[in-house]
Design a protein around this nucleic acid. Structure first.
Lengths: 189, 189, 189, 189
DNA sequence: TATGAATGAGAATTCATTCAT
DNA sequence: TATGAATGAATTCTCATTCAT
């Protein structure tokens, strides 16, 4: 079905761009095709349907986000507090890089949630949760319900990236958000 | 042209219900009409288009949310910490009451943001910001950027309501989230 | 069914005005009602349907045109040539007075032609035909087929009124058209 | 977007046929599509809207009429009188061939008159006017206002074709109308 | 008689999907 | 593989007509 992965990636890039700017029903497949410089029929060589394309985009974006975080955590020498600040930073960078990613963490409220999708979300949260738990073990954090807190973080970062007052730069926002979260986790300062 | 505001409200209620369960393009105006027990043409007596209806729904929900908060703040005797816990609770209740409301605070990513809409959002945030600032004045909170923090709160509550692990009840979630926020604001405990 | 003939006339006037400016399907009954300052339902007290209203308008305009001509012919002392010039003038005045009348004599090609309507048309033509025949009898005109010629006249006047080059005034047009017709009828000059 | 001009022509043919038998609002695009044996969506591949299709039909018919006349005039050896009889004949044939064409010269009363359309009308008239003027130069006709007379002719032919008494055949009508016009132009006989 | 909100059948238009090339 | 013209089911929107007041 696919071979020319370069073309598939171009379609995904284009679709990601368009889906990030308009709601699902305003994005026409003919727009996607034109912007990706492929024929409309070609889309169907790579994706079963419009829904399929949409989820492929979400999936790819989400996966790459999680991969970035995993790489960071694998390589860093920082403690849980530095790790948390780091993943907040990565999250924020993703949001800034493509408005679309903002949809990733919750927008698609009303869409059917596939198992694949649930898995990804769970991966993200358990990643946060892991950091929190290791912070607790080290006596750095305290939190009665790390699973819940893990869910706060993405929503918090999403909100502030979406709506940050114009003046606030990425650095400023990340620093402030990290401190807020760390204090929220009871980090002694 | 109209007069029967009761009918308009029924349409809005119905539409809110349907839009909360399906994405925009899956909600048919004929469904709305049938569910609201009015003729299809009647919808157009009250709303210019499907988009118009959609925004009217969003707007009403958001307005009612803000009104609830304002009433609460007007009547309560609580200090800033109690106020914050209160508005978190109200936010969470709205999200639980109708999944749809979850779109409220994030939806507008891809949609044309009107001035009316911006105003509502600004109202919500300044409401949070006001509480934070009075907490700071009273030496209860510390926060370098209350405007930024105000933006966290709704995103945080939204995320946790959307994704709270099944077991977590509303009370539990609210208590935990409030404490997290209050700690994040440096409240001495 | 009707009593308040003043209101009926107002509706007819208004409808005539609107039908003269737009094709049938662009004229909405709500426009007619508003412009006539009556309720939409009121239209149905006086006319069975939109079609009915349309034909009532055509009928009234046409009848008044024929009446004008008949009055003129009854009162004039002129010979057939003066009579012809006179009815051309009346025709042209009607066309100028209300663009709508231009539809009268043929526009409604594709509409169902009722018997009433056919009768009116026949009346108009026989009126022209009568003048021509009396001219022939008096040795003033010659024409192998007065019935055919009668049909020319209204079309000719209609065309020139519709499309007269901007500069041409009513007087000029009438004089020229009459002379053309009279010459066409072989009037010695 | 298109290429298959054959299909476009088939749609135009079909639409011309249907528009010639019913008023605009009675012609459904689904009828057009079915009769032209194309999908409903295909219509929109070639024409922006129903209005657009309608004007395309009018335009094509009118253009072909003028082309016929031009060809005739280019090839004929006849003098101005024969030329006039010839174009009258062509006009009448067009009207007979398709009732629809009858709208051509009058329809535009109530419709937005585009420049393209004005140009066509002007072309038709200047064609008549040219014949008349050359007749005048040759001492065959006399006419104080050939521009006005040019406008009579189409209206005259249209009227008689529309309303010719049943018995009158095309030949008969053309001969009679031509003679009438020629006499109107003062042709010595 | 008069009204105009309500209606819903009916129309125009759109767009995901197919398929012949 | 790649295309984009063709499709028609699906959807939004319109508007003549009705009817409760």
């Amino acid at each position: 079905m696919k071979e020319d992965s370069e073309k598939e990636q171009r379609i995904l890039d284009t679709a990601a761009e368009l889906f990030s700017r308009q709601p699902f029903h305003k994005v026409l497949l003919s727009d996607v095709a034109r912007a990706a410089a492929v024929g409309k029929g070609t889309l169907y060589l790579y994706f079963k349907s419009k829904d399929d394309l949409y989820f492929a985009v979400l999936f790819r974006e989400f996966s790459s986000l999680i991969d970035s975080m995993r790489s960071f955590l694998d390589e860093t020498e920082l403690g849980p507090d530095g790790q948390l600040a780091g993943v907040v930073r990565i999250l924020a960078e993703h949001f800034y890089a493509r408005a679309f990613n903002m949809e990733l963490l919750g927008f698609v409220v009303t869409c059917p949630v596939t198992d694949e999708w649930k898995q990804l979300r769970a991966d993200l949260w358990s990643l946060f949760e892991g950091i929190i738990r290791s912070g607790i073990e080290q006596g750095l954090f305290r939190d009665e319900d790390p699973a819940l807190t893990a869910r706060y973080i993405s929503g918090l970062v999403r909100a502030v990236c979406l709506f940050a007052p114009g003046a606030a730069g990425l650095d400023e926002v990340c620093r402030h958000a990290s401190e807020f979260v760390l204090r929220g986790l009871g980090k002694k300062q």
